[in-house]
């Protein structure tokens, strides 16, 4: 059972205890084209080489690839996303194909510019077969699965973006240059790709932008 008292007590202010930061500093961004969520798709062309532990290098191959990507720029310098890559290539003797699901990171070292460095790490697989099935031997590699790493640079060109209209986001043509590496089990594949994508940037909601009142 409780005993209740009614008292009025107060004290002069002593030192306060540390209280956890319960509000984050919110920074509103200036509207820009390369902002918010993005979806992109495009084609790439490049050169690839595969090395097998038993047969050695399988020579240079040229090929095509495509990618579908999506993600978001979290703020004006870093962004995350998901990418699905696939492609195929070959030379006279060998043919190969690959596919991967990757986690992508994008950095824009010069905020405000549309130039980005992007890298990804993902799970990928590669299949290899002889161009001429009659030459197959038991020791031929059949493929491998492993981690796929990519590192490259890209530039987004926004032909329809108008800065004075406080727009955020828009359509862009993205050109890029990328290196990829797939160190697998018994096979290592590496290559360089150059390509073009179409990207749509969704931009940020006006509530997250630093805009004057007349803009909303």
């Amino acid at each position: 059972m409780r005993t209740f008292l009614v008292l009025s007590v107060a004290m002069l202010v002593p030192t306060g205890a540390w209280a956890q930061e319960d509000t984050q500093e919110l920074r509103l961004l200036k509207p820009a084209a390369r902002q918010g969520f993005y979806v992109a798709g495009g084609l790439r062309n490049g050169a690839l080489t595969i090395s097998d532990e038993n047969l050695g290098g399988l020579g240079f191959m040229t090929g095509f690839g495509f990618a579908a990507r999506g993600g978001q720029m979290a703020n004006d310098w870093i962004g995350f996303g998901l990418a699905i890559n696939a492609g195929g290539g070959g030379n006279d003797v060998w043919g190969g194909g690959w596919g991967a699901l990757s986690l992508e990171l994008m950095l824009t070292p010069l905020p405000g510019e549309d130039f980005a460095i992007r890298g990804s790490v993902g799970v990928g697989g590669m299949g290899v077969a002889r161009a001429k099935p009659e030459e197959e031997t038991e020791k031929d590699p059949s493929g491998t699965a492993g981690a796929l790493y990519t590192l490259g640079v890209s530039y987004d060109l926004f032909p329809w973006y108008e800065k004075d209209k406080y727009e955020s986001g828009g359509f862009a043509f993205t050109g890029f240059l990328e290196g990829m590496l797939l160190p697998g089990d018994g096979l290592i594949a590496g290559g360089v790709m150059i390509g073009l994508e179409v990207t749509y940037w969704f931009g940020f909601n006006k509530n997250k932008l630093d805009i004057p009142p007349e803009a909303y």
């Binding site: 059972m1 409780r2 005993t3 209740f4 008292l5 009614v6 008292l7 009025s8 007590v9 107060a10 004290m11 002069l12 202010v13």
Partner: peptide, 18 residues
């Protein structure tokens, strides 16, 4: 914020029991 020292008013108001 400055909580002030006000008068001390001890009064007893009991609920059930002791």
């Amino acid at each position: 914020s400055l909580p002030l020292l006000l008068l001390l008013l001890p009064t007893l108001a009991s609920a059930q029991g002791e």
